[in-house]
């Protein structure tokens, strides 16, 4: 049984001054299957995410989301179509509280503009509080985000992405910067929230323990191309992967 194809790329190529960051990349991402992307540094993993979310335009090739071409669209347009992105450094409004960040995202989603309404009065408030609960951050809803620890900032960042009701969430190293002891806790909350919101995720990761536990599929990137793709067991025990990727991690 094949589930719906959310994102599809065909023949992506991009060349940064001699460095081939994407080499004929053709990939399908299916709904409900969380994909982990691994590979050595400089392999083009982040470039791939950038192309899919409109931050970089490829020299050649196409990107389709739910069947519609999005190759030349702006990040904002792609976001509004249902692809959200969470960056390595959480992109939050540090002078605002956790809840305010979510409310702003909700307002943006609904394109609300009321000059006389207070932010806290928008109809989406309950929905946003629920999202905060989902990521276990409801208790800090009134705290300024720049006062919170990195783990919570990450989760709130995810919540903001979820506020936009995406179908697909692309994450750039979701546990980087999080203390080792907390990594699994954060990922537990994250995957549970995504499952409940019915959001498929694609995440770049360097921690193989995380990959093994939380990914449904793994794809290996090297020299701008997908070298291998399969279940975590298949990929992580492949000798080339052990040599080139995991070896590097140790």
């Amino acid at each position: 049984m094949t589930s719906e194809i959310l994102l599809e790329t065909k023949g992506l190529e991009i060349n940064f001054g001699g460095v081939i960051a994407a080499d004929n990349v053709s990939v399908e991402i299916h709904a409900g299957k969380n994909l982990a992307i691994i590979g050595p540094n400089g392999a083009g993993k982040t470039t791939f995410l950038n192309i899919c979310t409109g931050y970089t335009k490829p020299n050649k090739g196409n990107v389709y989301f739910c069947g519609r071409e999005v190759t030349q669209k702006s990040p904002r347009q792609i976001t509004r179509m249902g692809v959200a992105r969470a960056f390595q450094i959480p992109q939050l409004f540090s002078e605002h509280t956790a809840l305010e960040n979510l409310l702003i995202a909700a307002a943006a989603r609904e394109q609300r503009w009321a000059p006389f309404m207070k932010l806290g009065q928008i109809p989406e408030r309950d929905e946003m509080m629920h999202l905060l609960e989902l990521v276990n951050c409801a208790q800090v809803s009134d705290r300024l985000v720049n006062e919170l620890p990195e783990g919570q900032r990450k989760l709130i960042d995810i919540a903001v992405a979820l506020a936009l009701r995406p179908k697909l969430l692309l994450l750039d190293e979701p546990t980087s910067g999080v203390a080792s002891s907390e990594k699994f806790g954060v990922m537990d909350i994250l995957t549970r929230a995504l499952a409940e919101a019915k959001v498929t995720s694609v995440f770049v990761e360097h921690d193989m323990g995380i990959v093994e536990k939380y990914a449904d599929e793994v794809a290996v990137w090297a020299a701008g191309a997908v070298q291998l793709r399969g279940t975590p067991q298949e990929v992580l025990e492949h000798p080339d992967v052990i040599r080139d990727v995991i070896g590097e991690e140790l």
Binding site: P75, T79, S94, A105, A107, R109, V160, A163, L164
Partner: peptide, 22 residues
């Protein structure tokens, strides 16, 4: 107000603001 907060958000971080669709 809502509009005001959106303006402040854009002021603080245009990229983030655009990324979430403002």
């Amino acid at each position: 107000t809502l509009s005001g907060k959106l303006i402040l958000a854009v002021t603080e971080d245009r990229e983030t603001a655009t990324a979430i669709g403002i």
